[in-house]
Design a protein around this nucleic acid. Structure first.
Lengths: 347, 347
DNA sequence: CTGAAAGCGCTTACAG
DNA sequence: CTGAAAGCGCTTACAG
């Protein structure tokens, strides 16, 4: 079913049908009703491909994700799609499937330049109005998208080249978390850092130190440990921190997996959380709900990152806003029962 | 940059450039090289929209997912995309975001008929060659896609109308799991069923019973319990099953969340897994890795379901295969250390 | 208020 | 081996 057929059925010109469809010119009530009736009866749907070709805009946005199966990706896509739908845009998805290809060797991404170029070819060929690139890990992405002349927004990563970015705050978040612990009377800290080469790990650690510095608290070298974001290393690190007299009263784990490790380590050592040791995590991941007591953690604004990425992109597409901006969204503290209020004991 | 511009730069006709691009007619070496040089220099990419319009095929497949944030969805999308890419197809994604809208009231899906119709409008407007519908829960979907004249494949769900489907085996999987327990000498079983209204729960239970029947084992009524797929109810059910002398030697939990609940319940009652009670789960979900001993479970072939759904669809699109087929893929047993071999003790 | 016609960027018989 | 021309299904000045 095409415009032409509708036109001939209604006994009008294709132009008129188009006017009715898009409400783009004055049409007499009578004609309009006649056309609308036929459209309804036939279930006609206009060919978006033809429309886009003619109008030279596709209302299509390309979303390149480094890996769909990485947990946060689905939530970001969800956010992107919600805005897209509301604004009448569609999204085509390209999944680079990097998780199994590069593991934690994020630098090796340039090896996959070919995959990216291919994705880009398709999207530009499809005449996308812009591109959102969703990282599997928050870090700097350079040169990877080449020299495309479309608006680009990086989400869950950023670039030193052209393109806006939407991220969440690592440093401030852990700063506030740590400050909260200090306000609750904690002075002896243990910390379990993330992967050494990881930017978020470094940022989170900075936030941690900043809060300590402001409070005039210094860390004992022996209480600074490093995990690889995983449960097992978190547990091992916690055992070292806890298996001695005068152990820290609070352990800041830089993600939930490791925080759960801390809880299990504590239990195996006969220590109670939070009475003997307080624990905090990061991510508000699913694992949290299986652990008692509930670990105090922080939630990343994943869906909102998707919203903002899409909104930024559309501003660029429509020319409302020009130039690249970087947005860093705050995380939300999710208070559990894993932090003891030391200072209330003395009342 | 268009075909026409390339043609004039190369001093040939647009037809010739098209022939070179698509390798669709004999072109002299000289001409070909001349054209290829210009294409490379200019970085020309052909307009897929125009091509699709002209050829009346889009190489586009629509993927409607009930909710991207439901864990299995990402893996299925991953599988779909992998095949799509290999065959030169692109996918547009529509996310119905049903999770928060319908919770477990799967019947209420018809309330969202409008969302679905909208997604369908877009996809058909984009001239997709076919549609894959990915469920958030395995169940029958009726009438929902209306009367579209494109190939449809249902994945992680099925239909009584037109359309193929790709699912995994619930009944057989639990049948084999149970049989394995019986072969290991277990005779006293406890079972923790999933949500009452859930089809997979019913199928899994059937598989369980079938294995028992074949072995001539009957269940005590009191050992049949029902959870809601969640940790907490699993744990409560397990406490009822275990908190008595002569408790079952094996508890079959119909998913991992509840199986973890069983382990925690056992620990709290001072029972050891697997020495005092064996436990099995279903899903091979992430939670498994935090639990010691490792729970014996079963992995669903999610990515493969994506492969098969896409392959089926493309067979329909190309007309290689006609008619609807239902594929049920087997799950994979993941042996942990939560099952005791009772019969080896007596040797 | 309505329609004839050009044109978006391609592909593809067809003729030479 | 190459090119002129029609046509895919739309939109949009323009004329009336």
């Amino acid at each position: 079913m095409t415009l032409k057929e509708i036109a001939s059925m209604a006994g009008v010109s294709v132009a008129t049908v188009s006017y009715v469809l898009n409400n783009t010119a004055q049409v007499s009530d009578e004609t309009r009703k006649k056309v609308e009736k036929i459209i309804k009866e036939t279930g006609y749907r206009s060919n978006i491909l033809a429309k886009s070709l003619r109008r030279n805009e596709s209302f299509l946005v390309g979303v390149i994700v480094e890996d769909v199966t990485v947990w946060h990706t689905a939530y970001i896509i969800d956010g992107i799609n919600e805005i897209a739908e509301a604004r009448g845009y569609n999204t085509i998805l390209s999944n680079l499937r990097l998780l199994n290809k590069i593991e934690s060797q994020f630098d090796h991404i340039s090896n996959y330049q070919k995959d990216i170029d291919k994705a880009l070819d398709v999207m530009i060929g499809m005449q996308v109005d812009g591109i959102i690139y969703v990282g599997m890990h928050d870090r700097k992405i350079s040169h990877i998208l080449g020299n495309i002349k479309k608006p680009v927004v990086y989400c869950y990563c950023y670039t030193d080249g052209e393109g806006s970015s939407v991220r969440y705050s690592n440093e401030k978040t852990v700063y506030h978390m740590t400050k909260m612990l200090i306000e609750n009377g904690h002075k002896e800290f243990g910390v379990i850092n993330g992967l050494k080469e990881s930017e978020p790990a470094a940022l989170r650690y900075n936030g941690f130190l900043k809060a300590l510095n402001e409070a005039g608290i210094t860390m004992k070298e022996e209480n600074i440990t490093c995990g690889n974001w995983k449960y097992r290393e978190g547990k091992e690190a916690a055992k070292k921190l806890l298996n001695k007299s005068g152990h820290p009263t609070a352990i800041v784990a830089m993600n939930d997996d490791m925080a759960v490790g801390v809880c299990d380590a504590a239990r195996e050592l006969g220590l109670k959380v939070p009475d003997d040791v307080s624990v905090t995590g990061f991510d508000n991941s699913d694992i949290i709900q299986y652990v008692t007591p509930r670990i105090t953690t922080v939630e990343r604004p994943l869906q909102e990152m998707g919203y903002r990425a899409m909104e930024l992109l559309l501003e660029n597409v429509s020319g409302v806003s020009v130039g690249d901006v970087s947005i860093t969204l705050p995380c939300t503290l999710i208070e559990g029962e894993s932090v003891k209020k030391l200072n209330q004991e003395n009342r």
